[in-house]
Amino acid sequence: MANLLNKKFFKEYSSIEWILMKVSLCFIWMKLVTEVAINSETIYYPSGICSLIDCSIFLSVYTSSILLFAAFILSALYITEKYMIVVTFLMFLVSLLSFTLEESNGILNRSGLYTTVFLAQTFAYIRNNQSLKVERIQFPIQIIAGGYFLASISKLNQSGLNWIIEAPQAAIQMVKGFSYTYFDSGNISELDKGLKQADFVLKHEVLVKLLFAMSLVFETFAWLAVRNKISAFAIGVLLSGMHFGILYFMNIFIAAIFYPMIIFMVNPTYLLYSIIKWFYQLVKLGVQSSL
């Protein structure tokens, strides 16, 4: 536990921390890119770069396979820290193409943060100064924090404070989320669960307004995460709480936004590693003292 609490932990990013961050990022990225490669069948509504160039050539089995193979090789090079300027830029391009194909299928998963964190890292590696070890993480955090800040601006611009006042109407979104699961699985208990959650919200308006006000504050001040490692961790924990709340009440999980945020700000795999390491040391000390 000392490792978790010492000053170094809160100021610097260790090598193992950085590697575990990259492994987590690539694991999720590969999963998302694979899903797009398998599921993109045609271009229904050309958007982004697909509105400028003909992206249908990327829909064939061959081009999808090449794209997936490229993503796999790039992930391996990224984790092993090879040719980082070129690799991070190519990962940005693969991401840009994959997720634009997904959006051109009418599925708006808003994976923009995932794509842009690679470009932010390209900038950090081009600069390649003494602060590289911090900037390759802090630059992506700037993009992620920007995304949450934009979400807050969007809410305030569209609804103003009515976003909080009308929060109980989120009961509709809650039952909608659970209805999706019902019509996917046929499991009626999912629909019942949604109706119960909606009923709870309609009966506890003040509590719901308070929770929504808190989440709006978290998003509005997400930019504080760029200050240093401690603030990134604190904001990351608060935003994670917000996402888990959305998942519990609305059955909605915004994967493409949640994953880059938790990986760069909280880095749960490193937290797990640190706890296991601390526990191992504790056991080792116990064994030594008993001898």
Partner: peptide, 13 residues
Amino acid sequence: FHPFSTFPMYNSF
């Protein structure tokens, strides 16, 4: 316009 978005999801109820 991927990767840019104003993240409008649930900006109103």
